[in-house]
Amino acid sequence: MPITKYTKEHEWISVDGDVATIGITAHAAEQLGDVVFVEVPEVGRAVTAGEACAVVESVKAASDVYAPISGEVIEANAELAGRPAAVNEGPEGGGWFFKLRLSNAGELSALMDRAAYDQFVKDNA
């Protein structure tokens, strides 16, 4: 059973064994508006927690997507380059950005669960 955690930068990370799938939350997608460009990291790249490793752009602005935890990129969502709108359609599903093989599962404990993230969004509205 995968567990899902959230960051203050509005990424979600769903962890199943030592593989984590990362995307942006529905709240983040809604705030961005129509996504027109996505750049995902190269497979094989080693990233550390908090490192900017993907880019998401709306008509108005560009935003970085950060690695919530450290690991190695093992897959990137190839669909997003041709169809960035997939992020708006299913930010917490088909609009995922990339997958990491975790190098330090302990980093997960620093992230928020759903209830804490929802509260965080509410407090920062």
């Binding site: 508006g33 129509d34 027109v36 709306s58 008509v59 108005k60």
Partner: peptide, 12 residues
């Protein structure tokens, strides 16, 4: 207003 619920792309 920077955008309405329609969104920037569709408003354009």
């Amino acid at each position: 207003p920077v955008q309405y619920p329609m969104g920037v792309l569709k408003e354009h």
